[in-house]
């Protein structure tokens, strides 16, 4: 099962085995990892599962943002070019070892 590492804003790390087909957001929420709120439940309709993907090689393995993801991120604070909504990242074998970092807070 792919391993995903979640790093809270305070630096605390959590590693979870996340089944393929789940989203990175689900991997956090279902493992009770704090820092990802996911208010809309994965509908790409808020921006409360915002994460940063620091490794460009990993980021390249994730399908590009849809217009809706771009738009929702555009309204969130603390946005960077490597920002993603974790509900839109589907876990695959290729994403084994993915590291996502969380912002100060989810808006």
């Amino acid at each position: 099962m792919p391993k995903i590492k979640y790093i809270e804003h305070n630096g605390k790390e959590h590693v979870a085995d996340v089944p393929e087909g789940w989203s990175v957001m689900e991997g956090a929420v279902k493992n009770m990892i704090p820092g990802i709120d996911a208010d809309c439940g994965g509908a790409c309709a808020c921006a409360t599962c915002h994460v940063f993907v620091d490794d460009p090689a990993m980021a390249a393995k994730i399908p590009p943002k849809t217009d809706m993801e771009e738009t929702m991120l555009d309204f969130a604070p603390e946005i960077a070019p490597n920002s993603r909504l974790s509900c839109q990242i589907k876990v695959t074998k290729e994403l084994d070892g993915l590291v996502v970092r969380m912002p100060q807070s989810q808006h």
């Binding site: 996911a38 208010d39 309709a45 808020c46």
Partner: peptide
Amino acid sequence: ERPRQHLSFGFGIHR
């Protein structure tokens, strides 16, 4: 279990 699951803030671009 999921107290933040509510529609009161709306969803989408006008949230």
